[in-house]
Amino acid sequence: MTLLHLENLTKRFGGLIAVNDVSFDVAEGTIVGLIGPNGAGKTTVFNLITGNYRADSGKIVFDGRLINNLPTHKIVSLGIARTFQTIRLFHKLTALENVLAGCHCRMKSGSVAAMFQPPWQRAEEKKALDKAMGELRFVNLETQAMNLAENLSYGNQRLLEVARALATEPRLIILDEPAGGMNDQETAQLIDTIRQIQARGVTVLLIEHDMSLVMKACEKIVVLENGAKIAEGTPPEIKANRRVIEAYLGTDEE
């Protein structure tokens, strides 16, 4: 079953066509990779899906519902969570509170309930706290719960972003270069974590430059170049694709 469906998606920034007529599907329960040289428009595609940008034309359908013009927080509550290429944590808050941010959209209490704290509000807080600790444990950061996010190592900050995204109870998680800045050992662990995310029933869409990760983890790969899709297929197909090899290595015309 298709969970996410992109159809003829186009985004222009002034004269630049950042995303040009891109279409692809993400099947539920799979791990899909989006790759391409720098400036190919990968992150722009992510920003379109998550509502940070508005598409100029084309359709984004999530679980049968058109989500093109929804605000980001609505899209998150529908079940799409993301991480950022440049880590965007709440640096001055604790790791636990960063994950609690993800719990926010599954909670209800507002300002009045906060001031008077009826029993249901306390119960909700406790549930959120348990959930947040659970997600920290999932990425092996439970011992860091009370540390400020800015004091975590780079690799751990990336994992914390993953935990925050998972706390929103997504059906699709979008990871923008999750292995960026990680060493080989951390990357190997990350592949493990991504597989565990899949095992939880969450579909994964990721951008990554680390080809070994992409080839190992992804079932399907979509390749972008200059905003347009140039290939789509399984890892072996992509490895053998002439257009992809040219895009990455250049042609030998010169």
Partner: peptide, 30 residues
């Protein structure tokens, strides 16, 4: 009352917005 407000979902949401509004929206906060 304001101390209670600080230590709640509402109070945290305000802090997330102060720290990074893009990340806050990305975490599902209106």
């Amino acid at each position: 009352l304001l101390r209670k407000l600080e230590h709640s979902r509402f109070g945290r949401a305000l802090n997330y917005i102060r720290e990074d509004d893009v990340a806050a929206a990305g975490s599902g906060i209106d």
